[in-house]
Design a binder for these strands. Structure first.
Lengths: 332, 332
DNA sequence: ATGAAAGCGCTAACAA
DNA sequence: TTGTTAGCGCTTTCAT
């Protein structure tokens, strides 16, 4: 049988409430009593049961995202986990594959389990579900996703600027025919990145060409296919901006298979800057999200919100940064 | 205020125990009462509070590993999460960096939180801590790690065989001077891989040379340094077996920077076969761990153990498999 | 088939 | 400073 607070109380010859006070550092207790209790706790190897006290929450938060197998999410999960642990929180992972059904299921599970807060980094989640969480008074922070219509804390990079930076850099290198491979445009970050890309083109006097934007890609295999589609035409683009790292890598592989030289014949820019992109050979030129800062900030907001719910919510927009690797070069 | 079982009972005009029975499908209830209760539950949007019932556990398991940012662990976490969810379990991640202090801390946290079970995929964990968990009757399954001295369920690949396969393949290709880059040999999988590598060499009549085994490497940067150390000598090896994918990638990068051609001048074999290795260009020749099967099996064992603790424990050894990519070639 | 009531392990308000 | 006791939301005997 597991040791309970009653066992400790009995062995130490005091009442449970006294033990409880020692445990939680509340009320006032005599020095000797405290020492004696602490001692019996050690002797009995007593471990308080966090679950039992219904009013206390579980010191656990949920992290909803497309998939923990996605390097960007895994890396940010690591940051969130660390920061959380330092403040006494555990992390439950919830991979949704952007499936609304799965999202609803997870929200329901998290509510049942009396989670203290939720980080939402998943894509298609319809606003209704989010509203429900907020209404049920569970602290929420959005990660890498903006929901302008909702009063909710959020941390994300300026995706528009990221898209703008990527295209601008390619334009600077002399490229004029610049294609884009992107995820589903219903996902807000992807859409913003395309908008930024478009803006950069137009400012440079290059006409935006819908045919050069290949949509609805997710895996690196999609990146390969999209890249093939773009390149196997007369007068293909000389540069590609891929809205994720996986897509960039897929594109690169196909480029090479087609016998084109990288970066001499074609330049490629990615997004995220995870270990994947950094370890790739050559390192991928990419628009970096500040993973560490984002993870840190998102937990900071969530913990604040857990400790004392605020009326005024914050939306924190971070700046993406161009990291030049070896996948881009001046246009010949 | 959150809806409780009492609200449901009152609204439906029955007692809480009746509602409880409906909720858990226990006892016998009249068809109409059942329907009425189910109906009010829906109307009130009642969500049972899993936490409240102290005898029920939380339907949550903990996954201890070096880091969720490690692709192998992230991919296997995804499998575990999925399988767990299908059986009603949530997953808490615990990244330890193989630090014994952190491991102890996490074990304590998991116990407090009344976790139902723990998967241990972390490295240096001293046997004492594991023993403690087992003694406290928390179901445990070891992942990718063998502890011969302990009666505990475990799932892992035959690391010895993996090392043997890697070296054998390189020998088959005509290589004779084969180096190895590996993690800390105190970590059992790494040690086993070296033993297998050694065995293959010796069987082929090649003398095992300690100087060709560079130890204590973790990051891909370590892989770069080790590879440089190996290659910047007179008559360097013509093949390298790296005990993880990150090390292999580091080695590859350095090889190229040194102006050597891959795989013409030097062959490299990795371990794991994660998306990292598959997406790399060229795809890395590697010893694949059956990630999907391992994740599935580990959860299967854990759930069995949670449902009814068994006297007899199982150790399931899976077979690694050589996956030939583009980083290996016949010796010139 | 249904309900009353006793726990589960802990916290917090209130007494002493 | 310490102890008594009433909950927290739910499950589970044991009656009815």
């Amino acid at each position: 049988m597991k040791t309970t607070i009653y066992d400790v109380a009995k062995t130490a010859g005091v009442s449970v409430s006294t033990v409880s006070k020692v445990l939680n550092n509340t009320g006032s207790i005599g020095e000797k009593t405290k020492l004696k209790i602490l001692d019996t706790i050690r002797k009995l190897e007593y471990q308080p049961n966090v679950v039992a006290s219904a009013r206390k929450r579980l010191q656990t938060i949920g992290f909803m995202m497309p998939s923990i197998a996605n390097p960007f999410m895994a890396e940010i999960a690591r940051v969130i986990e660390d920061y959380g642990r330092q403040h006494g929180f555990s992390l439950i992972i919830c991979s949704t594959d952007n499936d609304p059904e799965r999202e609803k299921e997870y929200i329901s599970i998290l509510r049942e389990k009396y989670i203290d807060g939720i980080i939402i980094g998943t894509g298609l989640l319809n606003d209704k579900s989010i509203k429900k969480i907020i209404e049920s008074n569970i602290p929420v922070v959005m990660l890498a996703r903006d929901v302008p219509s909702l009063a909710v804390d959020a941390v994300f990079v300026d995706d528009f600027l990221g898209g703008f930076q990527a295209a601008s850099y390619l334009i600077e290198l002399g490229h004029e025919k610049i294609a884009m491979i992107t995820e589903d445009l219903k996902i807000s970050p992807a859409r913003k990145r395309v908008e930024g890309y478009r803006k950069a083109l137009e400012e440079a006097g290059i006409k935006y060409d819908e045919k050069l934007v290949i949509q609805n890609n997710v895996t690196y295999n999609d990146g390969m296919l999209a890249s093939e589609q773009l390149l196997k035409v007369p007068s293909p683009p000389t540069a590609i901006f891929a809205s994720t790292e996986a897509l960039a890598i897929g594109a690169i592989k196909r480029v090479r298979e087609l016998g084109l030289r990288l970066p001499e014949d074609i330049s490629i820019v990615g997004f995220d800057n995870t270990m994947f992109g950094q370890m790739f050979d050559p390192q991928i030129t990419t628009i970096a999200q500040p993973i560490y800062d984002m993870g840190q900030k998102v937990m900071e907001l969530l913990i604040e919100e857990i400790n004392e719910p605020k009326k005024v919510k914050q939306r924190i927009v971070m700046t993406p940064e161009l990291v030049v690797g070896g996948t881009t070069a001046k246009k010949k």
